[in-house]
Write a protein that binds this DNA or RNA. Structure first.
Lengths: 231, 231
DNA sequence: TCTAAATGTGTCAAAACAACACAATAATAG
DNA sequence: CTATTATTGTGTTGTTTTGACACATTTAGA
């Protein structure tokens, strides 16, 4: 048997939601679409699945094409398959989201794609159902970051507790108590004191930490309770 | 423009993981595959996506075909797309999982598909990558049921607290303290006392509760902390 | 050297939690 | 009819965690 006697075969795309954090705001790397329809409009970075390519490999290819990076945090979000989601032809979109350090990317390839880091709070209109994808990705990020230590993927190797707090505040769009946050984070044992201190600070220099990799990996699938419960 | 000038179109299947609970064990509704390859082997219920059919609609169609039920709890899990996952031809599988009351299903259609409720602890070998799908679905169920009140989907309309506890113990494969569990569940306000008591009990009859729908819906996306933290 | 802004650490009362005890109910055995 | 046994409902207690808040320390710049 070489194939199933079934005719409906669909075009399959991969779209990537790329999160970054600039120290103040949560941002997305968006591109200006380079072909019709909707040419010139804001869009997620995407591409079609190749014939002999696994989905995850396709996602990495597409992410690499835009950012120049390998080995970044990627997770499959969901597949969007509404019949009319693409006006040209029915196209399934397998959506991934990625977390990267906003300062680690290839400026050239970003430029050549007319890509831009845009704050989640100033999101422009996006093509097709891409806004729904972003919405879902944000929910998933909030969900996951509240329970698993993935926030670190958005920060540099060395970071301070106040930086980490600002990140969580950006993700959840709320203010946290400095002292309680610090206590909670330190109690996880995920942070290792590097001995160094933050250089560029106008006031008291904060301690630089790095991630405790062993603890991170061994306990990744445990639940942490980073966020306060809101009932 | 009528289509994209791109040739790779893929066959897309939908596979459904159907969870049930018989009062003691967590079970899956599995079928014996009715066509080649792997004819006669255990498999998840599935089918191909129709040309003019949304993914969710396809999932409901497939679930209805096997169980005779409509309006059941369904959630998209993930899309499996390894190039060689189906030996015949590359086929994407969009996987859904469903939670149903094990006593609500059409015996006839279940029989005609040679389907069977099988305990998770006695799972047979499954075709292709279906075991991975089940594994992922179980993880997702554990994840979700710890934080959101979806367990109720597996129980009859009226249920007792000991029944609910047995359900959670089955999902997480652990023993819980009866008294602490009761206190925690009641404190959510999700349970309404029906005034009735469990009939078929050899000893003290337990209070029958039903779900507080308003609370269920309004607070569904809040986090509940049903399960103890294991750090 | 004084000020202002940010950081590190500590306190305390309230809430949540795990471990455990005891009384009430209902079928069954004697 | 009573004792036994299994199960259910509810309470107690000491410990831990949490949220709200105070105070001292560091650094750049006035």
């Amino acid at each position: 048997m070489k194939s199933y006697a079934h005719s409906t075969r669909l075009l399959v795309a991969i779209d990537c939601i790329i999160f970054g954090f600039d120290g103040e705001e949560l941002k997305l790397l968006l591109i200006k679409r380079r072909f019709e329809p909707e040419k010139g409009k804001w869009s997620l970075m995407g591409g079609f699945v190749n014939e002999e390519e696994d989905l995850e490999v396709g996602a990495e290819r597409i992410l690499h094409e835009l950012t120049g990076l390998h080995n970044i945090y990627v997770e499959q979000l969901q597949t969007f398959g509404k019949v009319d989601r693409d006006p040209v032809e029915r196209t399934l979109s397998v959506v991934f989201f990625a977390l990267i350090n906003i300062h680690n990317h290839d400026e050239e390839s970003v430029k050549s794609h007319s890509a831009c880091w845009i704050s989640l709070k100033q999101m422009p209109k996006l093509i097709f159902d891409h806004e729904k994808m972003v919405q879902l990705a944000l929910e998933r990020l909030r969900y996951k970051a509240a329970l698993h230590p993935i926030g670190f993927e958005l920060l540099p190797q060395q970071f301070t507790i106040p930086q980490l707090q600002k990140l969580y505040e950006a993700i959840y769009d709320l203010k946290l108590d400095r002292r309680n946050f610090s206590r909670k984070i330190l109690s996880t044992g995920l942070l290792l004191d590097t001995g160094e201190k933050n250089a560029n600070s106008a006031t008291k220099k904060a301690i630089l930490y790095r991630l405790n990799k062993e603890k991170y990996e061994s306990n990744f699938n445990n639940f942490w309770y980073f966020m306060p419960v809101t009932t």
